[in-house]
Design a protein around this nucleic acid. Structure first.
Lengths: 382, 382
DNA sequence: TTGAAAGCGTTACCAT
DNA sequence: ATGGTAACGCTTTCAA
């Protein structure tokens, strides 16, 4: 038989493409190419993966044939052979658990149903947003990880850490907030300024008359919180000039502080008619309003969803809450980090999720998550 | 060297588990179990997969050891070995493309980034919701598919088809709507009655006074549309008794009809103050309102997102639109169908996605999809 | 520069 | 009922 034009197995072709109107998808393997060219599969591999040890001539020959035959690598075989394993660290606060628990669950799930990859996850926790983070990080840094998923709090504190770890070859992925202008490989968060904007629009729907509104925030030094405020203020200014925004209140995530602030502001005669609580820590504020008998009278938009919020939304005492989709955030963060680690996606991967607007009418679709925080949520959450 | 007890490489154990505070996840393979029990890997395989040819005794022994060692199958190897290939047909209308194109894209993407599985997708199209579907189906049924993704329109028409194909061993997955009480293996859709409920709540926010409201629907024989109406009516009755719901209008997805209906209803003096268009075909209705000078005066909630809607939302002429997340629907439908086909998930997989509420303030997060309908959307759409 | 062959962890088949 | 082993498609090492 002639060297070219070999008798490639003609029967086997049958297994591919059931035929018909669908183009492409012919799918040839590495050995189909080898056979067609009468070279060894080793050579084909070298050519395709741009390895050393192939003459330019054969390389281009192989590449062309690969194209022609529609080569598609068998990912399963590839994964099996190079049984790579990655180590990924997750450094997140323990508090507030109704946010970070599902976030961690999302990471875990994404890691789990990622086949062909031996991923070792390791979780590091610290008490809350500003406290203990440094210690958690230094604990983590004693070992080497291929990537770390973390929440960038105060920018000044985290910038140097990110830089240092990145230099050491660790891929840094932000979740919950972002740290722009650093070496992080990407970030996943709910779109903060749009969250603020939505809150403003919803409150404005219910306040057609002149009125005051106020924002209860957490840490304005966290980019995320600052942006929410900005979005709220901007939307108010543009869409609802009849509403006046009072100076924002910053609780630094301390419940007592939040309660005190809410009390002193709202007990006055001309209290604001609209309230946006842009931190997940809305309970103290709500409690103050409750005690003042203002629930149901004031238009309230909160952040996140948790057990105690459910009845308040159900009864219409809270107009809406903006759900930041922690589970999805975790899932996407992991998937993108993995994509970066494997395929080296070069583009800056900044994902800003659309927050879900939870009202009385669609609460039932979400309330299960608030009840059982550690459960594996269905896709309808994504 | 002896046949048993070969000089297995002892160093390799090091690759597993980088150690530390994280429980579980040790990851043992099938041959680890075999080794620990001094049986062959064949036996282990039989036990684990509940195959014939193992004594109860060894089977339970193996199962226990698997548990103890934390057996986790190597999915890559599994996929490689049983190089199964599935054929999946997708039967969907061509119209309305701003809904079905991204839906198809979601299916394609889900199929693409599913590794280790040779999936052949085949698309069948028919003109629109009630027309040509029968022909498309019979064309498809000339060949055998392992699964088909389709939109169940009129229940009576589809029931028998679903039954017939199911009996023939084809897994039927509904998308866009559901067909309960049939043999379908699952469904993915936006939660219809909650869509209606949201529309009612949003309109009520803006209509604190006594007023009439109306629903423009498509095909009330399609479950999806009927449920939207039901949700709307129920929420209105419970939450906003001051609003009166006029009899619903059914356009049968004919633009002319919808326009005519809108015109004749709205030109009257005491026209409704709130309008919910529960079909994606909202343009004719909007055009009628525009011509009557009612845009901006009447509270309108629409369905889906497309190019022409963007400026209307931006300018506040449309209060909100309920985005049914076609891309995510397609993606999830495919993933669930695949899971069923592979793992034989036994539970009825009915996924009801939470529709995204698109307002003026968060429109920018979605409008890209309306502009370039065939593009691969980011995760922020999910 | 190239070819040949050993494995990766499973499954499936043929012995025993 | 059980053990042994070939093969899945790829990467990698060792020879030629």
């Amino acid at each position: 038989m002639r060297p070219h034009e070999t008798i490639k197995p003609q029967k086997r072709k049958i297994r591919r493409g059931i035929g018909g109107m669908d183009l492409g998808a012919k799918s040839a393997g590495i050995k189909d190419i080898a056979k067609a060219l009468n070279v060894s599969i080793g050579t084909v591999d070298r050519a395709i993966h741009d390895r050393t040890g192939v003459s330019e001539r054969t390389k281009s020959k192989v590449l062309k044939m690969a194209e022609q035959l529609g080569y598609k690598p068998n990912l399963a075989a590839q994964a099996l052979k190079l049984n790579r394993q990655l180590s990924i660290a997750v450094v997140l606060p323990k508090h507030i658990s109704h946010f970070f628990d599902p976030l961690r669950a999302g990471i875990r799930d994404a890691a789990a149903d990622n086949m062909g990859m031996q991923v070792s996850l390791e979780f590091f926790e610290y008490p809350r947003l500003g406290v203990g983070d440094v210690k958690a990080f230094s604990g983590m840094m004693e070992r080497h990880f291929d990537g770390v998923i973390f929440l960038p709090g105060d920018a000044r504190k985290f910038d140097s850490v990110i830089r240092k770890l990145s230099k050491a070859g660790t891929a840094m992925m932000c979740v919950g907030s972002d740290a722009p202008n650093t070496d992080r490989v990407g970030s996943v968060s709910a779109h903060a300024s749009i969250s603020g904007a939505i809150a403003a629009e919803l409150i404005a729907h219910k306040l057609p008359q002149k009125a005051n509104v106020v924002v209860f925030s957490g840490e304005l030094s966290t980019l995320d919180h600052a942006e929410k405020l900005r979005g709220f203020a901007a939307t108010l200014a543009v869409q609802s000039p009849h509403l006046t925004l009072l100076p924002a209140l910053e609780s630094h995530e301390r419940p007592k502080e939040a309660y005190r602030q809410a009390m002193s502001l709202m007990e006055k005669g001309n209290h604001p008619q609209g309230v946006y609580v842009s931190t997940a820590n809305s309970l103290p504020v709500l409690q103050a309003l409750e005690e003042l008998g203002l629930l149901g009278k004031v238009q309230i938009v909160t952040t996140d969803l948790f057990q105690d919020l459910v009845p308040l939304i159900e009864s219409g005492k809270v107009l809406a809450t903006l759900y930041q989709r922690p589970y999805t955030q975790g899932k996407v963060a992991f998937e993108n980090l993995l994509a970066y680690l494997l395929k080296g996606s070069r583009q800056e991967m900044v994902v800003r999720l659309a927050p879900h607007i939870i009202l009385r009418s669609n609460l039932s679709l979400f309330s299960s998550r608030a009840t059982r925080p550690d459960e594996d949520p269905d896709e309808d959450l994504s």
